[in-house]
């Protein structure tokens, strides 16, 4: 793929259009990454000129959906980074179990793989019955997928391996029903999930949680936006609550670092002040 079909100024123009016309603010995303995503889509959809591309985004609501879905990264998997999930099992869930009611927020949940992973963990810790999983994303299309709980059968082998490495002792296939090339996760998981659009850039705190997971989302944001999102998380977290980030993300240099303590070598912090 050629990288530079569109210039920096073209990308800026599109991002300004999105903000003005639709309120989607991508202007504080990491520049190289967003430019690459926009270029990728331009080439993938075989546009012949920037003007045509821009017109389509402005005039065709269906294409706008596709644009937002494609420029945001939606890649995810179940039990990604198994040691992280192992740490959740061993270090976080026992503490959460002491609460009468557990509220968890998956911020930037994409198509929901991590939410279902968490629901499985909660069930195995006998906590699912008193838990509620709030799962949000900027992107309504992926939330529809997440809500259905239907995933490709082809991924299940990898996910089972991840599950076992995370300390899972059961047969992973007992949690879903396979049909042709798809699997559907059991209804008892979905009953504990609330899916909603939420834009970390512009939307406010909407509840207080004991655990917030936001993994591989902040890497796409610039420093200023990261700072605001950290504030949002801090505000949305109960005292002694946990914040979990992606394997290459850190609170260490952030504005809220002093009020958090990393619990172990996994990227999990606890709010201590």
């Amino acid at each position: 793929m050629e990288q530079n079909a569109l210039k920096d100024t073209d990308v800026e123009t599109l991002l300004n259009d999105l903000l003005e016309l639709y309120g989607y603010d991508f202007t504080e995303y990491s520049k190289a990454s967003i430019k690459r995503r926009v270029n990728r889509l331009y080439i993938l959809d075989r546009f012949l000129s920037f003007a045509e591309f821009r017109y389509r985004i402005k005039a065709d609501p269906d294409y706008l959906k596709r644009f937002v879905e494609q420029i945001t990264v939606t890649v995810t998997e179940m039990f990604r980074d198994p040691p992280f999930y192992k740490s959740l099992r061993e270090n976080v869930l026992p503490t959460l179990g002491t609460y009468p009611f557990i509220r968890i927020w998956h911020a930037g949940c994409s198509s929901g793989e991590e939410v279902y992973s968490m629901a499985v963990l909660l069930e195995e810790a006998n906590l699912l019955h008193k838990s509620l999983l709030y799962a949000t994303d900027i992107n309504p299309e992926v939330l529809d997928k997440a809500r259905k709980g239907i995933f490709s059968l082809a991924h299940m082998k990898q996910y089972s391996e991840n599950y076992i490495s995370s300390g899972g002792k059961k047969e992973f296939s007992q949690y879903y029903t396979a049909n042709y090339d798809k699997v559907i996760f059991d209804d008892r998981f979905r009953k504990k999930m609330i899916f909603s659009t939420h834009n970390l850039v512009s939307d406010r705190s909407f509840n207080v949680f004991q655990l917030i997971l936001c993994r591989n989302v902040l890497i796409y944001f610039d420093k200023d936006l990261q700072t605001r999102v950290f504030d949002l998380f801090e505000e949305s977290l109960e005292n002694l609550g946990f914040l979990a980030l992606g394997s290459k993300e850190t609170l260490r240099f952030s504005n809220i670092a002093a009020r958090f303590k990393q619990t172990d070598k996994e990227k999990i912090w606890r709010k201590i002040a």
């Binding site: 793929m1 190289a32 990454s33 990264v73 890649v75 591989n216 890497i219 290459k248």
Partner: peptide, 19 residues
């Protein structure tokens, strides 16, 4: 992770599709 170089000479990571 993909590793990207930004114009301000910082590094970005990206967990998008494999290339």
């Amino acid at each position: 992770y993909h590793l990207l170089v930004e114009k301000n000479l910082t590094l970005s990571l990206d967990y998008s599709e494999k290339v």
